[in-house]
Design a protein around this nucleic acid. Structure first.
Length: 277
DNA sequence: TGCGTCAATCAGGGCC
DNA sequence: GGCCCTGATTGACGCA
């Protein structure tokens, strides 16, 4: 696909996609779409692009070559990582299931033991292991948002608190969107440059045609074979006056010229002698 | 009104 | 020390 092919369809300045994602609400940003889902988007908006999107969506923060780990692997590897659960969790929502309550309780005990040697409560940042990141990425590929059940299951498999899984997805969505916005911005810049260049060329061509028109009578600029004589009025067809004499053609011709995909192929009224008058 | 999601922001930690 | 990545917090908003 050429660049012009990419630029020409649906290049609209504005913001927003129309999404058909089934697991997201209407507020979902375009950048959250997966590449295979982009076929369902109508670029009704500024940053509307097609293809090559969400390049970052498959990018795991750590090692993406690792195969998705098993839950057992995660439990084995991540007990240490989970012990870094945030000390200053101010907003832990009330949870509905007893299972989540249990998870919260288990992690709370870790939090208590998370104090530094000097007894201070400085926050130690959780670093997800490669296995945890890989599983989260896998899950994100399948659905960029989680329902409570999925969150519970994933948190259990990862040996993390549901809130941590929720935060990870939240940040993942936000940063994917940011990345996509940057990609879209670059794309639109290139489109703008291409269109500006094309406009410059057309302006130059227009100036040359105007200069040519002033230098010669119009019919002299045409090949002799294209000139015809109107049998009724015995005038050479296709003159400027002839075009202007018809109010309807005077209105439609410029539009046709403007809409022509190839500006170099001009409408030639002499192909139809009767219409030339 | 509670819940889920978002944008904005903070902050720890690794890397150069 | 600055930059970047990323986990976490906060407040606003939309929806059922």
């Amino acid at each position: 696909m050429g660049f012009d092919d990419i630029c020409s369809p649906g290049l609209v300045l504005g913001l927003g996609f129309s999404s058909t994602l089934d697991n997201q609400k209407s507020r979902k940003p375009p950048s959250l779409m997966k590449s295979e889902q982009f076929a369902n988007f109508e670029p009704s908006l500024t940053l509307s692009l097609s293809g090559g999107l969400d390049a970052d969506a498959n990018k795991a923060p750590n090692n993406h070559d690792d195969p998705p780990p098993t839950a057992a692997d995660l439990h084995r590897q991540d007990s240490a990582a989970s012990s870094f659960s945030n000390v200053s969790v101010k907003r832990e929502r009330e949870v509905g299931s007893s299972e989540e309550v249990e998870i919260e309780r288990v992690n709370s005990s870790r939090i208590i033991s998370d104090e530094d040697d000097d007894g201070s409560n400085s926050r130690k940042k959780l670093r997800l292991t490669k296995a945890q990141s890989a599983l989260l990425e896998e899950s994100f590929k399948q659905h960029s948002t989680l329902n409570p059940k999925q969150k519970q299951d994933l948190a259990r498999d990862l040996n993390l608190r549901p809130r941590q899984v929720e935060v990870w997805f939240q940040n993942r969505r936000a940063r994917t969107k940011l990345k996509q916005t940057e990609v879209d911005c670059e794309f639109l810049k290139k489109c703008c440059e291409t269109l500006t260049d094309e406009n410059r060329k057309l302006q130059k061509e227009l100036q040359e045609l105007k200069a040519l028109k002033l230098a010669q009578p119009f019919y002299m600029q045409l090949p002799a074979a294209t000139l015809t004589m109107c049998p009724s009025c015995e005038r050479i067809g296709g003159g400027v006056g002839d075009q202007n004499s018809s109010s309807s053609s005077a209105k439609t011709t410029p539009l046709i010229t403007m809409m022509a995909p190839k500006p170099h192929h001009f409408f030639n009224p002499f192909n139809n002698p009767s219409a030339a008058c």
